[in-house]
Design a protein around this nucleic acid. Structure first.
Lengths: 340, 340
DNA sequence: CATCGGTCTGTGACCGGTCCCAGATCGGGC
DNA sequence: GCCCGATCTGGGACCGGTCACAGACCGATG
């Protein structure tokens, strides 16, 4: 069976106008809360709206107004990670809070394949959204180029290398990573390694850079294992590899809490105690940090605020503000718990 | 500064037609892959599309076609829970997989307040989506009533009491809860309680019913503590209360893995060992089950498939299929690990 | 050679709103 | 009584597509 006959016809603004005995223009004015409408017309229209069960047609309004009252939030991560990493969820919630307050609809778009990517670009260019927040973009991300080309208001969470001039909201990953590594070193560890991840993004690359800076002369590239994603499995496997390479390891910095959780399990599986034999620290301060046994020492980053600020930047641009290309950096701090 | 002058004018189908030297109709035919277009016209149009940088305007297409190629997925849960409970995420991913395969855009809508609720109803009625999947609806949920009234293709994950005739996809929560409780009893526990949650939904109410059925005569209402949401904090606090009420408790069924995780921590804080002193089982088989120490015995439910099937039902209705009101029930099974 | 079915194309009406201009109405000031 | 500005209303043009219809063209057929 093909498409259904005809979707049940909904009441339009003309039906309301007819019912209320006024013109379409007046109905439109009432619906949009504009001044210069008599009280009688207003009440008649409100009554008519209720009577005919009128619901405005968004497509028609978007077409005429050339905007949609919706903002896209693009997350460029595999679906699996979306589940694991509460950090992404927090960013989305922050964005949603800001958009919701401005009465805009958030539309979240997950890219997990080339096909998704094309569909998202089509979606963004198709007038479905008035602006876009981009999370976890990669180095030289084609999506960023596409957005810049389309000229829609945008903001990026993070600051991927090779980014076109687009406003961004981020944290100083390098300084934060350096701070927590130094703190770890101060607990008297002598052989400290790192499970690095996502080096194709600023967060991953900068965390590694901060680690390196903290170690200075003591930095040993053999004690760094890299993985493409911030994932539990990546942390576990990488840690196993690291312990084989360097059995005397007594400290490790994991690039995120999820990675640290995996690493922690690998350390335990190898028969070492945390923090006695090996100290471990993470990054994010997500719910994973508290779920670990022992609780993770980590870097707190204001994930919700990152999403919120990015969304606010997009909203400001949508209302004519000039894009703030210099970017916004939010504060982080070390949270010291039991794992190191 | 108010709204920007005018958004940069995009190329329209007319520009393409002009450039290719054909009519709008022919361009439209090519764009939609219809037959009866000459090869020359086709290539000329494809070249013109690339040259002028044409991107179709979705609002115009939606208006003319009276559909949007998008499906909404409504999650009626507080934002905080969204972060904690991977079960919801899995359902979304399943839905997204099905929609993505059918080249439809998933639009996820979170309801966390009355205001959100109104906005979502407006959104759904506004022609933004052609169908809707509803997750975690409550007893007599007004959203379900609104959707039924609007007459848009819909499917519900779960089967809330007081639901209008809408297709649903679910599991037999009662039987599954009974099965795992019986299994727990079979480990020789004599004082078994339950942390129940979300009794305003079928999942919560049915899990309690299954627990009760498994205990039969031994059921003691004093050993059941209820909480409104499937949340970590709820599990922890409820467990604390349960242990105070009944210090000889030696087994507990938590209504979900997240709840079980909270309960587990409360048990440990009270100085009891798991599973030696107290056996605990959860429900969902989410990533939390493996993150717990010891790993949780739980009920595996095919969360992704729930989302996928619900989305497929909506897609089928959109293509003219009759709604399958009898519903679809998916299988579950007990996964036995170390916590009981 | 007229007829016919299959291809291919152009055109006007329409989807349901917004926007803006022209004009009506009205009270107040000179 | 006339002019003026403020208030209020109607209606045409338009947003950018889709769709149905009419008609042109073509080779095959009787």
């Amino acid at each position: 069976m093909p498409l259904p006959a005809t979707p049940p016809r909904r009441a339009t603004i003309r039906d309301v106008a007819l019912e209320a005995g006024v013109s379409r223009g007046t109905v439109s004015r009432v619906l949009n809360g504009e001044p210069y409408v008599s009280a009688e017309a207003r009440t008649a229209i409100e009554r008519a709206v209720a009577k005919v069960g009128y619901v405005p047609n968004a497509a028609a309004r978007n077409l005429a107004r050339r905007r949609s009252q919706a903002v896209g939030v693009v997350v460029h991560e595999p679906h699996s990670l979306f589940l694991e990493d509460p950090n992404i969820g927090s960013i989305l919630l922050g964005a949603n809070a800001a958009l919701s307050a401005a009465d805009h609809q958030m539309v979240s778009l997950v890219i997990d394949s080339e096909r998704d990517s094309r569909r998202v670009v089509r979606y963004l260019g198709g007038g479905f959204v008035d602006g876009v927040v981009i999370v976890s973009a990669r180095r030289d991300d084609p999506l960023l180029a596409a957005v810049a080309r389309l000229g829609i208001p945008a903001a990026v969470v993070g600051r991927p290398p090779g980014m076109p001039p687009v406003p961004f909201v981020g944290i100083d990953n390098r300084a934060a990573a350096q701070a927590i590594t130094e703190r770890l070193l101060a607990t008297g560890r002598s052989r400290v390694g790192m499970v690095a991840a996502a080096l194709d993004r600023d967060s991953g690359a900068d965390r590694l850079a901060g680690f390196r800076a903290a170690l200075g002369d003591r930095f040993d590239p053999r004690l760094v294992v890299e993985r493409p994603l911030y994932a539990y499995g990546a942390g576990r496997d990488a840690m196993r590899e690291l312990l084989e390479r360097e059995p005397t390891l007594d400290g490790v910095f994991a690039a995120s809490d999820v990675v640290a959780a995996g690493a922690l399990d690998a350390i335990r599986d190898a028969g070492r105690r945390v923090p006695d034999d090996v100290g471990i620290v993470g990054f994010d301060d997500s719910v994973w940090a508290l779920r670990c046994q022992p609780a993770l020492s980590t870097v707190h980053q204001p994930a919700m605020d990152l999403g919120r600020k990015a969304a606010e930047s997009v909203l400001a641009q949508m209302h004519g503000g000039a894009p703030q290309l210099e970017g916004v950096m939010l504060d982080t701090h070390v949270v010291w718990r039991a794992s190191a």
